[in-house]
């Protein structure tokens, strides 16, 4: 049994002359959660589609669960496509059974596990409703159930949190963590890096089809040191970027994420801030993935 749940080697895909995926390689050890991060259009979905054999790569190799993707391997994967879709006229339970059967599951087992998951997602009582009768949020939940119903060894989730309300985002996150505890490997993409920060073991950052960074979350953060300072404030903080010793500053309106060229001179920064804005918090912290990403992209553009 291979240690890697997934291994991509030099994956390339062109669409109409435009390179969507440019020599991407990474591997995911079994039992880990990997976040595939990057802005919209970075090539995350294309990469996932190639993993699922929905589109063929122009070059490169993919190994899933230690072998090239085959019919029987597909049965061990749960895939949540970026664009959700279910049969509108099919009833909820029939939908679950159909897709579970396509994954090689027996109808009776699918029904039983389907009931359990529907209950978990507060969709019990909707078994005999048609999919078109569900609200958009409910359909999203149903789609997630379809993905995990056959208890896959590998979950490939394209933007799993999109379209969900905060409660259900928590629920999906819980189920992902639970699955990992049971040994499931999870790869998920998101452009919302704040979510990724809280769940992933390792990450791959993609920008314009290229991998800009990968590694374990802790290692990535360590690489970027403790140079970031977070300031919660009220007022107009536009002047901060022009201060001496400020390498970069990201202003979110009520929070600044500042990197200093010399972290030891942070008290000078605080003095500069006081009096010009109302400071309600000031702490040295790890840089956010968002910030790391922006820096990586800028470095790439500068280089």
């Amino acid at each position: 049994m291979s240690e890697m749940a997934l291994a991509l080697q030099d994956l390339v895909k062109d669409f109409d002359g435009k390179r969507a995926v440019d020599h991407i390689s990474f591997a995911v050890p079994r039992g880990e959660i990997l976040g595939l991060l990057g802005p919209n259009g970075a090539g995350k979905s294309t990469t996932m589609r190639m993993i699922m054999d929905i589109i063929a790569p122009d070059a490169g190799t993919i190994e899933v669960l230690g072998q090239p993707l085959s019919e029987s391997v597909k049965d061990r994967i749960g895939f949540l496509p970026e664009e959700r879709g279910l049969y509108r006229k099919l009833k909820v339970m029939d939908t679950l059974i159909f897709f579970a059967e396509l994954k090689g599951m027996k109808p009776a087992a699918a029904r039983e596990r389907g009931r359990m998951l529907l209950k978990r997602f507060q969709l019990d009582g909707y078994e005999e409703k048609k999919v078109e009768e569900l609200s958009k949020g409910m359909a999203q939940k149903l789609q997630f159930i379809v993905t995990v119903l056959h208890d896959p060894e590998l979950l490939i989730l394209d933007e799993p949190f999109s379209g969900l309300d905060p409660l259900n985002i928590e629920l999906v996150k819980d189920i992902m963590l639970e699955s990992r505890r049971q040994g499931t490997t999870i790869i998920y993409s998101t452009h919302l890096m704040e979510y990724a920060e809280k769940t992933v073991d390792s990450l791959v950052m993609i920008h314009q089809g290229r991998k800009v960074l990968d590694g374990a979350l802790a290692a990535v953060k360590a690489d970027y040191g403790q140079r970031a300072i977070k300031v919660q404030y009220e007022g107009d903080a536009r002047f901060v970027a022009g201060l001496p010793n400020v390498a970069s500053c990201r202003d979110s309106g009520r929070e600044l994420e500042i990197e200093l060229a010399d972290l030891s001179k942070r008290e000078q920064l605080l003095r500069d801030l006081l009096g010009r804005v109302v400071v309600s918090g000031f702490q040295v912290s790890e840089p956010s993935l968002q910030n790391i990403f922006i820096r990586k992209v800028q470095e790439g553009a500068g280089a």
Binding site: K74, D75, G85, K103, V146
Partner: peptide, 11 residues
């Protein structure tokens, strides 16, 4: 409805 992706990812 993009069900096709789910289908092709399964069979």
């Amino acid at each position: 409805s993009r069900i096709s992706e789910l289908l092709i990812a399964s069979a």
